[in-house]
Design a protein around this nucleic acid. Structure first.
Ligand code: FES
Ligand code: FES
Lengths: 133, 133
DNA sequence: CTATATTCCTATCTGGATAGTAGGAATATA
DNA sequence: TATATTCCTACTATCCAGATAGGAATATAG
């Protein structure tokens, strides 16, 4: 329970690796190699991160990725949401009617609080913090 | 991501329902009915809660379950761990060698912190709080 | 222009976990 | 003995994360 998807773990490791490189740039294949991530799978993840604007991409020969921002300005929340979407402990956490109970059970507030707690932790952890261990 | 299992949601709803009954007792079938939970599935969950000592059971005719403690003395963490085990964002969160990287990646501290954050929230939320919404 | 290296897109397969079901054994009451 | 309950074990079905495959688009170099 509350397990972190491989997607997100891969994304964070890849970003962490990219951030600590000289020049802060690398190809997807290099990152996959360095972090033991299935190369083809990582490609899709990198696209997510690019779409979110956390990194920038260059196609073609000599292409690859580079950090779009300072690692201290990138939060774990941004990375998580880029690759796995907003976190949702229960389906009705934001849309009150999105569960069989129609948003009318007592525990719901508790789940909303949980989401806020997790979001807060993710938002206050920067890539810089994480990549430095 | 970070989604809560049906097991845990059911457990909390059932406990919440039980806690707010006169006499704080009911049969599994009654709780299943009241909370729209598959009856047979709930049976197994109730056994988990009994094993953990959060509720007490009585077999046979006129049997059922009753609260073993005051709802204010039962935390969400106890319920979650009773039915789904300890939470584990990443496999190596407590056993450092339990992942392909052998516990040696920088992000690991971050995941440990996440677990502590979630555990803390769950531990400070009591059944009384939750059942009262 | 051609060969090559890369990102990017779409479609598909697969295994394992989760959710749920089935049947009945044990136990208690009346 | 009949009935109502918890408890136990095993099975089935469903779903989706994880992974793979193939190739289109794009850029560079020679
Ligand atoms: S789970 Fe949606 S209202 Fe309780
Ligand atoms: S995930 Fe286990 S060491 Fe990083």
């Amino acid at each position: 329970m509350f397990s972190v998807s491989a997607r997100t773990q891969y994304a964070i490791r890849a970003m962490s690796c990219l951030a600590t490189r000289q020049d802060r740039s690398a190809t997807s294949a290099e990152l996959a190699q360095a972090e033991s991530i299935p190369p083809k799978y990582l490609e899709g993840i990198m696209s997510n991160l690019t779409a979110r604007g956390l990194i920038e991409s260059e196609r073609g020969k000599n292409g690859g990725y580079r950090m779009a921002k300072d690692p201290a300005a990138i939060t774990m929340l941004e990375i998580v949401e880029a690759v796995d979407g907003k976190i949702k402990p229960v389906t009705c956490v934001d849309a009150a009617g999105a569960c069989a109970l129609g948003g009318n059970c007592h525990p719901r507030k508790f789940w909303v609080g949980l989401k806020q707690t997790i979001d807060a932790y993710l938002a206050e952890s920067t890539l810089k913090d994480v990549s430095e261990g």
